[in-house]
Design a protein around this nucleic acid. Structure first.
Lengths: 140, 140
DNA sequence: CAGTATCCGCCGAGATACTG
DNA sequence: CAGTATCTCGGCGGATACTG
């Protein structure tokens, strides 16, 4: 499985990956499909947090900087609906809800991990350093 | 271009987290950084096409279904500016421009490959079937 | 504590027209 | 052939208020 690519015609390439629909949305390729499942600003940080531990809503909220109440809720819902995480509600007052990763979620975390390491690699190449909050102000 | 800003709350300053800036944009983690370089709808399809061959603008345009003139141009510019591809202009009439992948771009393709295969994996799990061209012009 | 419901601004991306 | 320049729009994601 090392760098052996068959030569193919232009037509083959074109027809190799037809468009397809999922939930009434048109996708052009598998990358789009994958990124629609685990992409966006918050899904990966969430999956990352749950990769090896069960967490309550409030814990996630505290652990993930900048995330808003609305986004945490909606992204948790989507991840749950598509089987990446599991939601367990305890019938107590006040409410207690625990989130945990599924098998599918664990597989996703592997991908997140790869992208994350690649990101770190790129940051080095681009000379980006973490924790440079100097000059941070409300801007825009 | 990449001159956008995220809003930063006062809480950001108080929280010691690995946020960082690049091109005046605030990032929360390495994944975001990576996806801003090679993410979006078109960068991966473009890199994918150039992975093992030099291509002219028109060839890319023909080979990448659905991409618009504007998006192809702008994405090629960004990929070039950040060193993922190289642009070679021939001083002839009519114009001839060739795009090729760089070392950095080749590394990126490896990641694209991984995400792509993961996408195919997910599609199987989700029971997604290929759809023939329905004549749909706009997605969604 | 955890979850909805609204309102809204911004940005990626499409459509279209014009140029050397 | 390859490249700009505008205009437009939908949707992600932020801010805020209300609820059991």
């Amino acid at each position: 499985m090392i760098h052996t690519f068959k030569k193919v015609s232009a037509k083959t390439i074109l027809t190799a990956m037809p468009d397809f629909f999922y939930n009434n949305k048109l996708y052009y390729n598998p990358v789009e499909f994958a990124m629609d499942r685990i992409g966006g600003t918050w899904k990966m940080p969430i999956l990352w947090r749950l990769k090896d531990k069960v967490m309550r809503y409030g814990e996630l909220k505290k652990d993930i900087p900048h995330i808003t109440h609305k986004m945490l809720t909606s992204q948790l819902r989507e991840l749950e609906e598509e089987g990446f995480i599991k939601r367990k509600v305890y019938a107590v007052v006040p409410p207690k809800v625990e989130y945990s990763i599924t098998t599918r979620g664990k597989r996703a975390v592997m991908i997140v991990d790869i992208i994350r390491n690649y990101g770190l690699e790129l940051m080095k190449e681009f000379g980006v350093e973490e924790n440079k909050n100097t000059g941070t102000k409300n801007r825009k």
